[in-house]
Every structure is written in structure tokens, then in C-alpha cells.
Amino acid sequence: MRLAPLGCPCCAAPAPGRRSLLRGAAGLLCAAIGGGAALAQVTAGAPRSLRIHRMQTEENFSGVYWQDGRYDREALKQLDWLFRDPAREEATPMDPRLFDVMHSVALQLDASEGFQVISGYRSPETNAARARESRRVSRASLHMSGMAADVRLPGRDSFGLARLAAEMQIGGVGLYRRDGFVHLDCGPARRW
């Protein structure tokens, strides 16, 4: 099979193999993260960990969620429950790429403190109720897909956190300065 660049069928190239795709993905990740400790740790396959405090439930997670080239299923189950919709006591499988975004941001900031999670998964009912209360809540929020979290890092300025995350271009970043938190997601790179 041959792949052609958009608009240029005459310049078709052979489909890349799996290894070249992986190398290319690692290269894109390198460019997105921008070097430093985060790049070295994520691309070298070092364990990935998070420290989380869930504000509404006072629950915590501190541990490794990815090691030896794969996600730790038990850690992901714990994180799924921690990121649940507390209004409905409903959990969903969170997209582990969200945890990678949070891990990468914490590495870039050299943050020893854990994230405070204000909002993780939102059921469609909870999201609809919030959207009726505030125009700032998207009716198509990635929170409903388990791909977003509203967070803060104690002792860190929300503007600085949002700016760094946006510069990394590894997902969506929203600054809610008045409320003192930052929206992070593993969707397309964008900011608001």
C-alpha cells in the first residue's frame, strides 16, 4: 500500500513500517515536550508516576501507573475511581494519556507536590447540569470521555502552569484564573 500526501498523488511514498512509525511518534513527542527531564523519562521508558489529591473526596493516589513498557492495570483502576464523578459515584475508564499529560507537566515543572484534582470524569447528566449553570462548561466536554481534568498544583501559579502546559502542546489547556485551576486534557493541542 502506498500513502500519498494530501493533494499530491504523484509524490506517493511507501507506507512506513512499525518501527519507523514508533520512532516518528517518539520524535513528535520529543518536539512536543521540548526536551529536558520530561523528554528523557518519557522516551526512555522510565516509570511514570503521579501524586493526586481529589479535593471533593479527600482521597489520594501516589504511585507508578506505567512501567516496563505498559500501563499498570491496578493503578489505572485506582485512578479511574479517584477521578470518578462524585456527584453520582460513577466512574469510567479514564484515558491513560491524560495521566501522561499530567506526568509530563509535573516533570517539566520539577514538581514534588501532587496535583489537586477539582474535576475529572463527569457523567453526561452532571456535565449538562453544569453547562446549564455556566456558559464556561462545554456541552461536548472531554470530561465526559475521561480525557480531561481540572487541576492545580499547590504553591504554583495557575497562569504559569497553564502557560507551560500550552507550550508543551501535548493536549488542551484552559486557564480558569479566577477559580485558580487549569484544565488539562489529552485531546488536540489547543488553549483557551
Rank of each mutant, 00 (worst) to 15 (best):
residue 8 C to Q: 14
residue 12 A to Q: 10
residue 15 A to E: 10
residue 15 A to R: 11
residue 16 P to G: 10
residue 19 R to E: 15
residue 20 S to I: 10
residue 22 L to G: 06
residue 22 L to A: 14
residue 23 R to I: 03
residue 25 A to F: 06
residue 26 A to T: 01
residue 27 G to D: 12
residue 29 L to A: 15
residue 30 C to H: 15
residue 31 A to G: 08
residue 31 A to N: 05
residue 35 G to H: 06
residue 37 A to D: 13
residue 38 A to P: 07
residue 38 A to S: 13
residue 39 L to W: 00
residue 39 L to P: 01
residue 44 A to E: 07
residue 44 A to P: 02
residue 45 G to D: 06
residue 45 G to T: 06
residue 46 A to Q: 07
residue 49 S to G: 15
residue 50 L to E: 14
residue 53 H to Y: 10
residue 56 Q to V: 03
residue 59 E to W: 07
residue 60 N to Q: 09
residue 61 F to T: 02
residue 61 F to M: 08
residue 63 G to V: 01
residue 63 G to F: 09
residue 63 G to N: 09
residue 65 Y to G: 00
residue 69 G to D: 10
residue 71 Y to F: 14
residue 72 D to S: 09
residue 72 D to R: 05
residue 72 D to E: 12
residue 76 L to I: 07
residue 76 L to K: 05
residue 80 D to E: 00
residue 81 W to Q: 05
residue 89 E to D: 11
residue 90 E to C: 03
residue 92 T to P: 01
residue 101 V to A: 08
residue 102 M to F: 09
residue 107 L to H: 03
residue 109 L to K: 09
residue 110 D to M: 09
residue 111 A to S: 15
residue 112 S to K: 14
residue 116 Q to R: 11
residue 123 S to R: 03
residue 124 P to C: 01
residue 124 P to Y: 00
residue 132 R to N: 12
residue 134 S to E: 01
residue 134 S to I: 01
residue 140 A to C: 00
residue 140 A to Q: 04
residue 142 L to Y: 00
residue 142 L to K: 02
residue 142 L to Q: 00
residue 143 H to K: 09
residue 144 M to T: 15
residue 144 M to L: 06
residue 145 S to T: 08
residue 146 G to Y: 13
residue 149 A to R: 00
residue 149 A to T: 03
residue 152 R to N: 15
residue 153 L to A: 03
residue 155 G to K: 07
residue 156 R to Q: 14
residue 157 D to L: 04
residue 160 G to L: 09
residue 160 G to P: 02
residue 162 A to R: 08
residue 162 A to M: 10
residue 163 R to I: 05
residue 166 A to D: 12
residue 166 A to N: 12
residue 167 E to A: 14
residue 168 M to L: 03
residue 171 G to T: 08
residue 177 R to T: 11
residue 184 L to Y: 10
residue 185 D to I: 07
residue 185 D to R: 13
residue 186 C to F: 02
residue 188 P to T: 10
residue 189 A to P: 13
residue 190 R to W: 10
residue 192 W to G: 09
